[in-house]
Simulated scan of single mutants.
Amino acid sequence: MFTIGDFASLGRVSVRMLRHYDALGLLEPARVDPFSGYRFYSAEQLSRLNRIIALKELGFTLQQVGAILDEKVDVVELRGMLRMRRAQLEHQVSTDTARLAAVNARLRLIEIEGHMNTQDVVLKSLPAMRLATLSAVAASYASSDIGPTIQPLYKQLLERVTEAGVMPTGSPVAYYTPANDDGAVTVVAGFTVSAQASPEQRFDIAELPAVPRAAALIHHGSLENADETYQALAKWIEDNGYRADGAGYAREVYLDTPMDDISKWVTEMQIVLLPDSDA
């Protein structure tokens, strides 16, 4: 089971939105603690969340979304509706590109439901890391918001570490703080370094602690499709009885990033697990 904060992060929505869906009866928690009132969700509920977001992007009101879901619209019908909306978006102005990407991402998630590849997930420890970092705030965890936020950070960071005479010692790393109720998230771009902090440098030094246990999965290709990999990780975590650590939600290690072809990128997605998980 996932806390409302962890589930919101995995589903790329805000905590406030999940509470709103609960109030409307669209997506109720799998369990509510009778003493604390804390809400808990299961990985299985990502399926319903994907449909709610997809139908919302089609322009349906939340009341209409509820009616459609209660009639159990199947994947074939939903795919047809999404493709029709995609055709409409392709004729709109460039400012709608982000919405189109969101629809495509949710469509992919719906199409692979029941076929997520979790066989390649590995359980591993993560070493402590010293990173030279820059950070910025993205509007949400959605790939369409994360990508434009993090990409300029790496260019700026490389310029600044070079200016300071600091040499990266390993692969670039990114990590994120949990989303607040409005869905905003702090994106941190980093290079592994051995240097100590210096008042003259124009970047921060972050010390990531060693992690005894994390679930990791290799993602191939553009990070626009990263949601698929993260939701596969979520399914594996729940299927194997682990729990995600919300404080260290996700790390990404960019193993290979040819600038001329993002389809050949290789990224390891890592979700930190609570040490007291029982699996």
Rank of each mutant, 00 (worst) to 15 (best):
residue 224 E to N: 15
residue 214 A to G: 09
residue 209 P to N: 07
residue 214 A to V: 02
residue 242 Y to I: 04
residue 238 E to F: 01
residue 233 L to H: 03
residue 247 A to P: 06
residue 240 N to W: 07
residue 212 P to I: 03
residue 227 D to F: 14
residue 201 Q to Y: 14
residue 238 E to W: 03
residue 234 A to P: 05
residue 234 A to M: 03
residue 204 D to V: 05
residue 224 E to Q: 15
residue 207 E to H: 10
residue 201 Q to S: 12
residue 201 Q to R: 12
residue 213 R to C: 09
residue 241 G to V: 01
residue 222 S to M: 14
residue 225 N to L: 13
residue 234 A to N: 02
residue 203 F to Q: 01
residue 210 A to S: 13
residue 245 D to M: 03
residue 224 E to G: 14
residue 223 L to H: 15
residue 214 A to M: 08
residue 205 I to Y: 04
residue 245 D to Q: 01
residue 207 E to V: 09
residue 208 L to Q: 03
residue 238 E to A: 07
residue 231 Q to M: 10
residue 217 L to Y: 00
residue 211 V to W: 02
residue 222 S to E: 15
residue 236 W to Q: 05
residue 227 D to I: 11
residue 219 H to K: 14
residue 229 T to C: 12
residue 245 D to C: 04
residue 224 E to P: 10
residue 213 R to S: 10
residue 232 A to I: 00
residue 203 F to V: 04
residue 219 H to L: 11
residue 241 G to M: 06
residue 234 A to G: 05
residue 209 P to I: 01
residue 234 A to R: 02
residue 233 L to T: 06
residue 200 E to I: 11
residue 200 E to D: 14
residue 203 F to A: 02
residue 212 P to L: 02
residue 229 T to E: 11
residue 210 A to L: 08
residue 227 D to R: 13
residue 224 E to I: 14
residue 237 I to N: 00
residue 235 K to N: 08
residue 215 A to Q: 03
residue 224 E to V: 13
residue 210 A to E: 11
residue 229 T to N: 09
residue 210 A to V: 08
residue 208 L to S: 01
residue 203 F to P: 00
residue 233 L to E: 00
residue 237 I to W: 00
residue 235 K to F: 10
residue 208 L to T: 01
residue 228 E to G: 15
residue 243 R to D: 08
residue 239 D to R: 06
residue 209 P to R: 04
residue 210 A to I: 07
residue 210 A to W: 05
residue 201 Q to D: 13
residue 204 D to C: 10
residue 212 P to T: 02
residue 247 A to G: 03
residue 244 A to C: 09
